[in-house]
Simulated assay, not measured.
Amino acid sequence: MPYITKADLIRRYTETKLRQLTDREAPYTGAIVDAVLEQGIASAGSVIDGHLSGRYTLPLTVVPPLLTDVAARLAVAALHVDTAPEKITADCQAAIRTLRDIAAGTVQLDVGGVEAAPATPAGIEVDAAPRAFGRENLRGW
């Protein structure tokens, strides 16, 4: 299940803006090029999955609105082949920070029925054999 759809992106960014970002090659169609838009959506999805995979069971059955917002920001940033405007860059960076917070467990997703994976303990435990030579063993030598 994708985190965002074409209709969601049109509602958020307008058809005109998406047409400008996707209709890149001659002969120009004057419409949104679905193949290019799908690449942006897939790129956003892979970034989100990469951050969620350590904490949640994927694929999610329900997409929370927070992830739809994050996916929109990432997808539009991915559609900019040249330098993106400052607003788009700032939105993309904010989306990545949100994903890092989700991965760290600072932000919890309400995904109904999907349990967050337990956090792994910080640190490594080592069980070693007793020392062969130490203060107690060498006393009196």
Rank of each mutant, 00 (worst) to 15 (best):
V107N: 07
D23V: 13
L60M: 07
P130E: 08
G105I: 02
R131N: 05
T120A: 13
V114G: 03
A104H: 04
V107I: 08
T14A: 06
A119W: 06
T120K: 14
L138H: 09
R24D: 02
V62T: 14
E25L: 15
D8W: 09
R131L: 10
V81H: 14
A95Y: 00
R100D: 00
W141H: 15
D34N: 13
P118Q: 05
K6P: 12
V47K: 00
P118K: 05
A71K: 07
T22W: 04
A129L: 07
G140C: 12
I41F: 03
T5Q: 13
Q108F: 04
A122D: 09
T120H: 08
A116T: 07
G30H: 10
Y28D: 13
I48H: 01
A84W: 02
A44C: 11
I32W: 06
F133L: 15
I41A: 05
L9T: 09
I102M: 06
Q108T: 11
L66N: 05
G45E: 03
V126L: 13
G113S: 06
A35Y: 03
A44W: 02
T89C: 09
R131K: 10
I32H: 03
G140Y: 03
Y28V: 15
D110H: 14
G112C: 11
P121N: 07
T106P: 04
V114F: 01
P27E: 10
A103C: 02
P65R: 11
G123R: 13
S53G: 03
T61N: 08
E136G: 10
H51Q: 04
Q93A: 11
G105T: 01
G30L: 08
T61M: 11
G134W: 10
T5S: 15
A7L: 06
I41T: 04
P64L: 02
V114K: 04
T57Y: 02
L60G: 09
A35D: 09
N137Q: 14
A95L: 02
I48Y: 00
A103W: 00
L9P: 13
A42W: 00
R19I: 09
R135S: 14
Q39V: 12
I124Y: 03
P65T: 07
L37G: 06
L21S: 08
V114I: 09
A77G: 01
T83L: 08
R24S: 05
G40H: 01
V114W: 01
T120S: 11
I48G: 00
P118D: 03
I96R: 11
L74K: 07
A117F: 02
L109N: 04
G112T: 11
F133I: 15
T29V: 09
Y56N: 15
E15P: 11
R131S: 10
E25F: 13
V81Q: 15
V70T: 10
A42V: 05
A116L: 05
